[in-house]
């Protein structure tokens, strides 16, 4: 037990001696995950809204597929991307293996199903309520999508957080495609994995603590946004 408390105190000391290398790692983590989140939302939310409003052939199958993709193993995603973007792979000419770009791509593949699936449920239930009114006013398809997206915006924040949580905590895929290269593709989770393997448990624990703190503060921000906009959400 004394072993653990020693590691804990040392790691807390490390957190407060926050240096630039560490802040670079934190910054890269945020940059990669937020980029992935932004792109996933730009792709995923319209798809979810479209699927909620439009009845199309294979819709149930599509939702089933997306729901199952939520459980995609990150290592598998990493491996497939690695093979595809390897120099000798079919998309090797992009030359993005071992860059943050491909890490963003990996995270998009992992969080897009989450964004689509959870927001679909929210948007579908809102559209179910609005459908008759929108139809009686002959609101266009495009406007219907915009209306449910706008009216669901505060609910969708939670979805976005879920996506970000998965992106930030992911390690299996990005360590394969990013290569965990110092200063280039080394992010918080891969650093934790690396330092653990080097036996530097204090540093690993310190990084883990920072990761949790970031996660808590992001959740807190969203909670505050929701709280203070409660009167504006008109729910």
């Amino acid at each position: 037990m004394s072993d653990f408390s020693e590691i804990l105190t040392n790691s807390i000391r490390l957190i407060f001696s926050f240096n630039t290398e560490l802040s670079d790692i934190v910054f890269l983590s945020l940059k990669v995950s937020l980029s992935a989140l932004l792109i996933s939302c730009l792709i995923g939310l319209p798809i979810a809204a479209y699927s909620s409003v439009k009845a199309f052939f294979g819709k149930k199958f599509f939702i089933l597929l997306v729901n199952s993709l939520m459980g995609l193993p990150p290592v598998f995603v990493g491996l497939v991307l690695y093979i595809v973007f390897s120099k000798s792979g079919p998309l090797g000419f992009f030359e993005i293996l071992y860059t943050p770009t491909v890490m963003v791509l990996a995270q998009i593949i992992l969080i897009l199903p989450i964004i689509i699936s959870i927001s679909f449920e929210t948007l579908e239930s809102i559209y179910f309520e609005y459908e008759e009114m929108l139809k009686s006013l002959r609101v266009s398809f495009r406007d219907s999508i915009l209306i449910i997206l706008w009216d669901a915006r505060y609910c969708l924040l939670t979805t976005v957080l879920a996506g970000l949580g998965r992106a930030m905590s992911e390690v299996g895929a990005i360590i394969i495609v990013g290569g965990n290269i110092a200063y280039y593709t080394r992010v918080m989770t891969t650093t934790i994995a690396l330092e653990t393997s080097k036996g530097n448990l204090e540093l690993a624990l310190a990084l883990g603590t920072i990761l949790i703190l970031i996660s808590i503060s992001l959740n807190f921000i969203v909670f505050m946004v929701k709280h203070f906009t409660k009167n504006l959400s008109y729910d």
Binding site: Y130, E132, M133, S136, L137, R138, I147, D151, A152, Y234
Partner: peptide, 23 residues
């Protein structure tokens, strides 16, 4: 048209009326 089950957008009274007029 006023349906049996009245539904409003998740917006203010003003915005609900304004929305219908904008349509």
């Amino acid at each position: 048209y006023v349906p049996q089950k009245v539904i409003f957008l998740r917006r203010s009274i003003y915005e609900n009326l304004a929305f219908t007029m904008k349509v």
